[in-house]
Amino acid sequence: MDHEPITIDVEGRSVTASPGRSIIEAVWEAGHVHVQGVGCLGGVCGSCRAIIRRADSTEVKMVLACETLIEAGMQVTFVPFLERLSDHPYQIDSFKDTWQLVSQVNQTFPEAAHCRHCGGCDSACPKGIKVERGVNLAVEGQLGAAGDIFETCIMCNLCSHICPEFIDPNHLGLLVRRVVPSLVVRPFNLMQRLNQLERGELYFDYEAPEASTEERD
């Protein structure tokens, strides 16, 4: 294995670190302060968004800095948390009538119908989600299929930042996923247990033999 240090460019600073380091680890190893835009360090929180260009490529890519390993000559700019310009606030319990569900979703995200099919959201997604397809399905009213597409979304907001129509695709995706359980899912075993609890049928014994041990003081 090659153990020669690697130098990358981070926001105009030259950062040198050991090979096998992620972008964030490299910045730390080089002694720089970096405490915002760092989250789970495991690729699920969407905090450490960065824009990179590799030395041998003309392509500019959006990645998560916690799971992108440094390569010689890589250029990196972090994407800080941006206050959202457009916003689609809603209360989930305002969705009550399932017959009106599709129109209410579309009223909440009116820009979704204006999708230009530019593919910007797809190229921005660090998780490879077919964002544009999900948006289009939601507009058509195929809420289940749309929701499935957003199943692995980490809510990093990169698709929302890049969308020229301010659709906020990931938030739309989360809404179509949320309305299903909120309005429709009523699992049998859970309902049965809740009924038992309401009727006071479950006796609780604090001092059951299985709940105690002789060592207990």
Partner: peptide
């Protein structure tokens, strides 16, 4: 069980 009901109502799958 109540926690699970609350989360489902909030929209958790």
């Amino acid at each position: 069980p109540d926690v699970v009901r609350w989360l489902i109502q909030l929209g958790m799958q």
